[in-house]
Simulated scan of single mutants.
Amino acid sequence: MSVLVLAEVDNGALSPATGRIVAASAELGAVDLLVLGDAAAAQAAAAIAGVQKVLLAASEPMADAISGLLETLAPSYTYLVAAASTLGKDVMPRLAARLDIQPVTDIVAIESPNRFVRPIYAGNALETVSDPQPRHVLTIRASAFRPASGGNAAPVETLSTPVASAARFIAAHRTESDIPDLATAQIVVGGGVSVGSADGFKLIEQLGKTLGAAVGATRAAVDAGYAPNDWQVGQTGKIIAPDLYIAVGISGALQHLAGIQGAKKIVAINTDAEAPIAKIADVVLIGDLFEIVPQLIAELENQGLKR
């Protein structure tokens, strides 16, 4: 059985999520990787273990164009796969509609070639889905899988048939940052609305920088303007599964907890010992975050952990 994976490319660089999707998809069969429009990203994709071939295509960065391209390639593949990211959630349902297929989304485990596990009820339960269709359209939660290793040298094939879009791409606006990718980071520091302001949130960023961690935020903190939208963690934001999640001033609303259930260890810093986040955390520090976090940063720096 053959698998075509849609690579995640951001600003010319291959996303770390792609290696995780390839590792998951390799359980289903031989993997080809589709890279849109960037030769450097295609070369990086060719180095991922498990990739049989890289397809490099010139395509406009619009969901209808990408789904149209995938439709033309679909007859050669049993599985068409993407990350359960903004791109995947935009493209794959369109592709499924074009192919008249019921997609299986947000997969966190693969039990067999047609049995998949996905979360429901805001992550409070898992369901196993049997997909008897002859062709499968899937989105996979990257944070649920370990990345594939490197060292491969897959061939790169350039596709000569671009697919146009009915829409027109005008501009991309991005937040420039040197911090790790939130969706795949091993350590994440998250801040809540209790931080009080955008200036107060700089304390969260400082702790993240000291640990070499990604920085996240609750929906309330984002809505209040304390943090950018792409830092939002939760059911309506990014789903994360770090080795360590430090929740600072976060009470633990249901939608936020749905986004961090994959975290292996959770440290909560909060004034409320009865907060929902405190009940699921492995370590709870009760007190004022503006006192605890500076002390924590100072101690980490004393231990030589400043990055």
Rank of each mutant, 00 (worst) to 15 (best):
V267W: 00
I250G: 09
I239L: 12
I250Y: 03
D230C: 05
K264Q: 09
L203Y: 04
Q255I: 12
D230R: 00
A247F: 01
A221N: 03
W231D: 13
G259N: 06
P228E: 07
G249P: 11
H256L: 12
I240A: 07
G208D: 14
D199Q: 11
T210Q: 05
A224M: 00
K238W: 08
K264R: 15
P242L: 02
Q261M: 13
Y245H: 12
I204S: 02
G234F: 08
D243V: 14
G208C: 07
P228T: 09
F201P: 06
Q232H: 00
P228K: 00
Q232N: 11
H256D: 12
S194G: 12
L244F: 09
V215M: 05
K202N: 04
V195G: 00
K209S: 15
G259H: 04
A227C: 13
A253R: 08
T218W: 13
D243T: 15
S194M: 11
Q235G: 02
A213I: 02
G234D: 11
V248Y: 08
H256W: 04
W231L: 15
H256T: 01
T236A: 04
G262V: 10
G200A: 11
Q206A: 06
G225H: 02
P242K: 10
I239Q: 09
N229W: 06
K265G: 08
K238R: 13
F201A: 08
V267K: 03
A221I: 10
G225Y: 00
Q232D: 05
D223W: 10
I239E: 14
E205N: 14
A220L: 14
I266R: 04
N229Q: 15
I204R: 00
A213G: 10
Q261L: 14
V195S: 03
G216N: 07
A217V: 08
V233Y: 07
G237A: 03
L207F: 08
Q261H: 14
V222W: 01
L257P: 11
A227N: 09
R219P: 13
V267R: 02
G262S: 07
T236K: 13
G212W: 03
L207Q: 06
G212K: 00
A221S: 03
Q206G: 14
K209V: 07
A263S: 12
G216W: 11
L244Y: 04
G262T: 05
G259V: 13
Q261Y: 14
E205H: 15
G249I: 04
S197Q: 03
G259P: 08
V222Q: 01
A241R: 01
A214G: 15
G262Q: 01
K238G: 10
P242N: 09
Q261P: 05
R219E: 15
N229R: 04
V195W: 08
I250H: 02
L203S: 03
G225P: 11
A253S: 05
A220T: 13
L211K: 04
Y245W: 01
G252K: 12
V193M: 11
P242R: 02
P242M: 13
D243I: 10
I260K: 06
A220C: 14
V248T: 00
A220I: 14
